[in-house]
């Protein structure tokens, strides 16, 4: 009996931390998603499904869905293939080192990965550019080209600080800052002119 109690006491700290910082916040998130709130006012008015309706009606949301889908379809099978391959090979020293190398990204800080890869894919000073220049290939704007950027970032999770914005030459400012577009709609909905 005492032994059983010990087990519960052992897992108690972890479960308590997870409850406070993961489980409860998830429920809070769900609750907040049904409310109209600007982070400042004490009132959190009930909005029901309005937030979701607003999202579904924006172009930016569907663009994000599209990009996420492409990313998942390409990235997940590649990782799965690597995982299966590392399971199937014979157990040697090389395969052990490889397995460690495959796991390393999971425990590496995203910030350091982002910094390294923004250097690797830098247009002017990048390693890849250096290699291609040696072969006589023109420089490629890896992270500035809207068609290319997603596939470059897909090598790691999209964590590069200099985010690939849409082509500025196209003048599509709405596309550059999806959040601004959303905020704008939201504000105009609550401004006096629209309520009258």
């Amino acid at each position: 009996m005492l032994r059983k109690l010990t087990s519960y006491l052992f897992i108690l700290p972890l479960m308590a931390f997870l409850a406070v910082f993961t489980y409860v916040p998830i429920l809070q998130s769900v609750n907040l998603s049904f409310r109209g709130w600007d982070f400042m006012s004490p009132m959190k008015s009930w909005a029901g499904l309005e937030n979701d309706q607003l999202l579904l009606s924006t172009r930016d949301f569907w663009n994000a869905v599209k990009v996420t889908t492409i990313f998942a379809v390409i990235s997940v099978p590649l990782r799965l293939a690597l995982a299966i391959a590392s399971y199937l090979v014979r157990e040697t020293i090389v395969s052990r080192v490889m397995r460690g190398a495959l796991f390393l990204p999971s425990v590496t800080s995203t910030v350091s990965i982002a910094v390294v890869f923004s250097r690797v894919f830098s247009t002017d000073y990048g390693m890849i550019h250096a290699g291609l220049a040696w072969l006589g290939i023109e420089r490629v704007q890896w992270m500035q080209n809207p068609q290319l950027a997603l596939y470059v970032l897909g090598r790691r999770r999209a964590a590069v600080p200099r985010l690939p914005a849409g082509d500025p030459a196209a003048g599509d400012a709405h596309h550059l800052l999806p959040a601004v577009g959303l905020c704008h709609r939201r504000l105009s909905r609550f401004s006096p002119s629209s309520t009258s």
Binding site: R3, S7, Y8, F10, I11, L14, M15, L18, Y23
Partner: peptide, 24 residues
């Protein structure tokens, strides 16, 4: 914190243990 919980999950069998581990 993690080692304590991990030890209990790895070695002890107690009611709700599997459920708690699934939650983790």
């Amino acid at each position: 914190v993690a080692t304590m919980a991990a030890y209990a999950f790895a070695r002890d069998r107690f009611p709700g243990g599997n459920l708690a581990f699934a939650a983790v």
